[in-house]
Design a protein around this nucleic acid. Structure first.
Length: 295
DNA sequence: CATTAAATAT
DNA sequence: GATATTTAAT
């Protein structure tokens, strides 16, 4: 029963199942001077985390393989819609994109899509099917339906998939005050300069570099930079992406607003490198929101 | 340790 | 110049 699939790519440590560990959204804040950076697909250093859902194991393997061809993807494949949904619930903000087959035994792709839109509104979903009709059907089911791809999926499909994620982010930008959303023509990708220096509210589009923040950070090291970073490694700023923020909110909800103090929140989040101060300050930022609620 | 205010960095 | 995040002070 072992198909030859395994032989072809088993050794290649495909991520088939999640080993939950780090779900961090932090990046090393580099000192100024990275202004003129261009952001093309290659410069796009952010990792796009993709949840791949299909019942067909072969397809899963093939897709995972394709994703591996691009260093900016990090794909996890699961079999079945409910499995996918479960995973999403466990890590509400882990994935940047869901790519699911339309037809599957059990929970269908459509169903999965619907529930995703209910629970994780901003999470982009790509439906995949070899059947054009099913695609049309899904188009009618929601106005927010994201994107469709026909089987077979090509490499170029995969390659540009991140763009959809980014576009999706841009579309959802509206919460932050006075952020001007710019139309994002397929042509001018270069136009987007979402690099380390940006303060815009879009998250996944930004470069997310370090996945784990070591606590090796000690201030008393003036001219001694340990690794990477063109310039001196300044203080590492935590970037509160939408993801991280949601984790944060989740923690608060789980703990209960009354018990939601920095320390507990921090413990709950279990984000390596994140400090209590980080949480505290972020909590401070959110305070106005709540007070507004009360009044 | 929590909270708040001031200081920086982006 | 405004915000987001850090640092210092309470």
């Amino acid at each position: 029963m072992d198909t030859d699939v395994s032989s072809s790519c088993s050794s290649n440590s495909n991520s088939l199942i999640v080993d939950n560990n780090d779900f961090i959204d932090m990046r090393v804040a580099s000192s100024s001077s990275t202004k003129g950076t261009k952001s093309t697909a290659k410069e796009f250093q952010g990792v796009v985390r993709i949840l791949l859902v299909d019942y067909d194991l072969v397809f899963l393997h093939v897709m995972l393989r394709m994703f591996k061809m691009f260093n900016y993807y990090e794909a996890v494949g699961v079999r079945g819609g409910s499995a996918g949904l479960k995973l999403l619930r466990e890590k509400p903000c882990y994935f940047d994109l869901v790519m699911t087959a339309v037809y599957m035994p059990g929970m269908s792709g459509h169903e999965l899509f619907r529930r995703i839109k209910e629970e994780f509104i901003t999470l982009p979903v790509i439906l995949v099917s070899s059947d054009v009709d099913s695609i049309k059907a899904s188009k009618g089911m929601s106005n927010v339906v994201g994107h469709f791809l026909h089987k077979p999926i090509t490499c170029s499909d995969v390659e540009k998939m991140w763009q959809y994620v980014h576009k999706s982010k841009v579309d959802h930008v509206d919460k932050q005050t006075g952020s001007s959303v710019e139309q994002d023509s397929p042509h001018n990708q270069e136009k987007n300069r979402n690099i380390s220096g940006s303060t815009s509210s879009d998250d996944e589009g930004n470069s997310r570099v370090e996945s784990r923040k070591r606590k090796e950070s000690q201030k008393g090291q003036p001219s001694d930079n340990k690794r990477n970073s063109t310039r001196t490694n300044k203080t590492q700023r935590v970037v509160w992406t939408e993801r991280l923020h949601t984790h944060f909110l989740n923690a608060i909800e789980s703990l209960g607003v009354d018990y939601a103090v920095p320390k507990k929140i921090l413990e709950f989040m279990k984000v390596p490198g994140l400090t209590r101060e980080n949480v505290a300050s972020h909590l401070q930022v959110l305070l106005p929101t709540y007070t507004f609620h009360f009044w």
